[in-house]
């Protein structure tokens, strides 16, 4: 269940200041995600991270090149590549259990087996007690747990996550990081994880792909040289994160230079925190 991006590129027309402009979301990109790997993609906003994930999910089609999963080129969305989005996207008219069962129902899994499998994954995210509840009765973190269970219930060859925790508060996010690390170890699913949270990526991933700012492309792919499970507080991890942070900041600054007035420059912008200190809003 290897994932290959072979010279994949994508561009859009977008409206800016009432003018239509053509912009390149992704320059031709080639890389491989290994089976069972936790693979993160980070980069400044607007760098095409989500485009990359949507291409892999089959929600968008590449202009050129192709995405290959399990030896088969991706041409439409499919239950072998389920996605956890930033918004939980639970169907508000279905109970938690029905939400988790829905993908299985589409697959034609008989109802008893469907229920058992849904319950198995709800147990994995510790929410069996809420199987009969409606999504709006759950907290944000619980909803995202259900979204994870729903995606896992289909037992996909790859689990795609598009900034799944960025709408949650720091404590809940912390909790879910540990859960995700455990679930990943348990299920051995390949995970492709898009985030702008560098510490999150460093904590969870085997490898991290850093992207350049617009037009998006690969800057480099970094190995995270620490064994799982990891401790968030470890000094090595903090140092590693700080270095990555510096690298991404260069990209952020480069994009800012293009977009902001000429009087802005990275030197006059407020000083960044010292290397080993957690950046504001970056608490994982």
């Amino acid at each position: 269940m290897e994932i290959q991006f072979e010279n994949v590129s994508k561009s859009f027309t977008r409206k800016r200041n009432d003018r239509e402009e053509h912009f390149v979301a992704l320059r031709p990109t080639t890389f491989t995600v290994k089976s069972g790997e936790f693979f993160s993609i980070i980069g400044p906003s607007g760098c095409g991270k989500s485009t990359l994930l949507n291409l892999l999910a089959g929600l968008e089609t590449a202009d050129e090149g192709r995405v290959v999963v399990d030896g088969r080129p991706v041409d439409h969305p499919g239950a072998d590549r389920t996605v956890v989005f930033q918004e939980h996207g639970l169907m508000p008219w279905m109970t938690v259990l029905r939400n988790v069962e829905y993908g299985l129902k589409l697959k034609g899994v008989p109802s008893m087996e469907r229920r058992d499998r849904a319950m198995k994954y709800l147990r994995m995210v510790h929410l069996t007690r809420f199987a009969g509840s409606m999504p709006h009765q759950l907290s944000g973190g619980m909803r995202q747990r259900v979204a994870i269970a729903r995606a896992l219930a289909l037992e996909p060859s790859v689990l795609l996550m598009d900034e799944p925790f960025s709408a949650l508060d720091a404590q809940t996010r912390d909790l879910l990081h540990d859960e995700l690390q455990r679930i990943w170890a348990e299920t051995k699913t390949t995970v492709v994880f898009v985030t702008h949270n560098i510490r999150e990526a460093a904590y969870l991933s085997d490898r991290i792909l850093t992207m350049t700012g617009q037009p998006g492309g690969i800057k480099r792919i970094v190995d995270v040289p620490f064994p799982h499970p990891r401790a968030k507080s470890s000094t090595e991890l903090s140092r590693f994160t700080a270095e990555l942070h510096q690298e991404i900041k260069e990209e952020v600054d480069r994009v800012a230079m293009q977009e902001l007035d000429e009087d802005w420059n990275p030197l006059t912008s407020p000083k960044r925190p010292p290397r080993d200190v957690i950046a504001p809003g970056e608490g994982i």
Partner: peptide
């Protein structure tokens, strides 16, 4: 989001 979720669930 519902359309995206629905499609990715098959």
């Amino acid at each position: 989001i519902y359309i995206k979720v629905g499609k990715t669930l098959g």
